[in-house]
Amino acid sequence: MKTVLITGCSSGYGLETARYFHDQGWNVIATMRTPRPELLPESPRMRVIALDVTRADSIAAALEQAGPIDVLVNNAGVGLFGAFEATPMTTIADVFATNTFGVMAMNQAVIPQFRERRSGVIVNVTSSATLAPFPLVAVYTASKTAIEGFTESLALELAGFNVQAKLVEPGYGPSTQFAANGAERMAGLVTEPYAPFAEQIFASLGQSMAVTEAIDVAQGVFRAATDTTGQLRFPAGADAVALAQAS
């Protein structure tokens, strides 16, 4: 029975992914900054532990508590929508702290046990924003695109140790808490000159027929975690698949 550790399980894709792996018979270590065990099935195969990927001490404590794992899923992330011109550099740093440096820190902390054991899979969750340009998410896209390049190189670096690195690229998920979770962070970032353009973008999103559901991402992560073909990228959701095919 294999064990997966998933970051960012308090809502959205991470929560659904934890449930999905559990349903497939895996041991699941679901992590979140503030543990809420009531969100997940009560089971001897489900553990909920605290983890803040922006803090080295929290990462070390979580991994010590988790014990050996077979798969690491880096799902924790923060969203940002707004004009780049209006985005403070401190906010940009906060986004990169979680979406980029937090993912790298988790990878670096887990790789030694995978390398020594000569087995393990790392799944880094990015975004379909890396597949095609999307306006008013320049900072978010940059933070996720960095992980795309990082994972491409890392996969080659670890192949000699029989350790795999994979990418899952979710599409636009209106059912997630992207906007709600980042409301304070995004306040004031759509300034008056950009307001008409932002209204057009919101209207086009509302008309989109193909979207991504949380289960699409959970299944995509599971495919990546269990893949034996050497595939690197796994678009998740109808819109993400369409973008990947067009690119």
Rank of each mutant, 00 (worst) to 15 (best):
V95G: 00
V211N: 12
R185T: 14
I111Y: 02
A155M: 03
E148R: 01
M32V: 10
F81W: 08
G237F: 13
R115P: 03
S175G: 08
G173C: 14
E16L: 03
G173I: 06
G149T: 10
L205W: 12
I49N: 07
P235S: 06
Y13P: 02
L39T: 06
Q177E: 15
E148W: 05
V53N: 04
A86I: 04
E116A: 15
D70P: 10
P88F: 05
A195M: 13
S208T: 14
E213G: 14
T31H: 06
V103H: 10
R19A: 05
M46V: 07
E213K: 10
V53C: 11
V95P: 01
T229D: 11
P112F: 05
A66W: 11
D216V: 13
A83V: 08
F134V: 10
F114P: 00
A187F: 07
M1F: 10
S247C: 09
D239L: 03
V241H: 03
E148V: 14
G8C: 02
M104V: 13
G67H: 14
G230N: 12
R45F: 07
S153P: 09
Q207P: 00
A146Q: 01
G160S: 08
I49A: 05
T130E: 09
P135D: 07
G120H: 09
T130D: 09
T34E: 11
I122A: 02
T126M: 02
V241M: 12
A180Y: 10
A105V: 02
A210D: 15
A195S: 12
P41I: 15
A165R: 07
N124L: 08
P88R: 10
T226S: 14
Q113V: 11
Q113M: 14
P135H: 04
E64Y: 00
A83Y: 06
L39F: 02
G220P: 01
A187Y: 04
N75K: 04
I6V: 14
G237T: 07
V103P: 00
Y13V: 06
A203F: 07
L80R: 11
R233N: 08
L167W: 08
A180V: 10
I111E: 08
Q65W: 08
E64W: 00
N27E: 13
A86H: 04
V28P: 13
A61N: 11
N162E: 15
A214E: 00
V190L: 12
L189H: 11
F178Q: 09
T90F: 00
P35Y: 09
P174C: 08
V48L: 01
F84N: 09
V48T: 13
V211E: 03
E192I: 00
A109I: 01
Q177A: 14
A83I: 02
V73R: 03
E152V: 06
V73C: 10
P35V: 05
